[in-house]
Nucleic acid binder design. Sequence first.
RNA 1: CGGGGUGUAGCUCAGGUGGUAGAGCGUCGGCUUUGGGAGCCGAAGGUCGGGGGUUCAAGUCCCCCCACCCCGACCA
Length: 570
Amino acid sequence: MRWSRYFLYTSKEDPAEAEAPSHRLLLKAGFIKQVSAGIYEILPAGWRVIKKIENIVRKEMDRSGAQELLLTVLNPAELWKETGRWESYGNELFRLKDRNGREYCLGPTHEEEITDLVRKFVHSYRQLPLLLYQIQVKFRDEKRPRFGLIRGREFIMKDAYSFDADEFSAMMSYENMKFAYDRIFKKLRLDVIMAQASVGQIGGSQSHEFIAFTDYGEAKVGYCENCGYAGNTEIISLPKPDPQEEEEKPMEKVHTPNVRTIEELSRFLNVHPSKILKAVLYIVNAKDPVMVLIRGDRDIDENKLEAVLGTENFRLADDKEVKDLLGTEKGFIGIFNLPEGVKVLWDNSLYGVKNMVVALNEPDYHYVNANPGRDFNYGKFVDVAQVVEGDPCPQCKSPLKVRKGLELGHIFLLGTRYSDPMKAYFTDPEGKEKPIIMGCYGIGISRVMAAIVEQHHDEKGIKWPTPVAPFEVAILCLNPSDQELAQVSEKLYLEAQEKGLEVIYDDREESAGFKFADADLVGFPYRIVVGKKIKEGKVEIQKRATGERFDVSVEEAINRVKEMVEEDKK
RNA sequence: CGGGGUGUAGCUCAGGUGGUAGAGCGUCGGCUUUGGGAGCCGAAGGUCGGGGGUUCAAGUCCCCCCACCCCGACCA
């Protein structure tokens, strides 16, 4: 490809709206263009990358025995009503009607459709196991699209579905996909950790996430360097700690005017935040007040709280509700003088504490040195604390590490969550009718592109790993108006094409510095620089990933690059 | 959905107290230049996010709406 004719336009200015490196660089280097919030066009260079990612995924899926097909974008509402997700999926489901008033949605995931398809053809245990997948555009009307391709409302996803006759076989399918995912992320040159995860909206009995460590992810992983455990922090349970050994001091009421936050209180009374009993008032199902108590140095994980409450329909109480229910203000909510009807939950972190600072639902006052058993009584203990670095590993108790990451893949053992309500049954060898055991397996393809940039870039631009680079080599003719340079460049360009290299030839009428900067930004793994060294019959090869550079003769150049490219792709 | 912020040229931005819109980059024409985002000369390019209001006069003041970004809660 001649760059002078190629639809690839870079920008010198950083785009104002982008913050995450992948978002900024993909825009700046001309890979994507935003159309509206969370919706992007993928431009020719970007599409080359996407296709390479897809093909790596495709190859490993096929190797695992999966068969590719293509489901629909427009799903009829009836299927979603069969599983109850038409109601339960919420506002993230893009819903629309056709001219006759029939309801549809734009598929955010395809369990319903694939189950419908399979139940129409599969009736016997002889047809199982079965593994189907597609690479398809998906739609989710995200509350908050973010960071370019990292969380879009329209995105490309690979989703696979397994169908088995029994639990054991289903487990084998699940394990098979784990291995496939491991191979896929290695080939994509992504540093990914597999973590236990919650099943969430999709449902099922167990699930794992594949998370790439990045600063712009939204998943938090706790992992253990001692035993190898890894899990999404929202599912890591924290046990009650050992009781504190401390002499109980007499309780006192102290004046704490206008001291509202844990931090202010800690400073005002000169006590560590862990000595403060934090109380947070939630309103559940729009009416029931629930007070959650937790140690002052900890925060509530609302995913865990959701599991405890059994509903996602809860929120923090507002100032008025606090006033009406407790007769106080935020900052002075506590366990003393609690009115009837306020349910109280104690986080495990408060077990065995001594000499605590506690609010009493009276503005501007706190008790100090309150002790359980003497001054107040414990109630129901629950685990709702956010996991932080140093918390005990659920397997071996060693201190956990916690890092942010980006969820690239998620696999679920679904069981009969979909096959049961949709009556996807088969007949077993005994002639009995049973629901098919299912699993589902996603990889966010467009998100993978962003993750690769997050993990492979520097201040100058992207450093594409060779297997996913839009072009493997760029030929930079530093002075196209010089006949000799132009001729050599043309010759190298033809030779590279003949030898099967994916090559872009920068023949634009631009200065040398401009071309270097553009090549750095766009991130081609190799470049051949045709410049003044041509007088000695030499050109320079540069490797983007390492910055290494060396001169070779014009004759050798293409073969040398070809060798390095082949080595990278192994 | 809660909180914060921004909308002015293709891009990045400047435009006290109201007086009829600018810069740099990019684009186009010309000359010069070619190993790290070159220089000079000239030119084109704007419903100032949209609507309403106040005013002799609104990019600027007031009201409503929209879009986008960031933080929080949620998904690949």
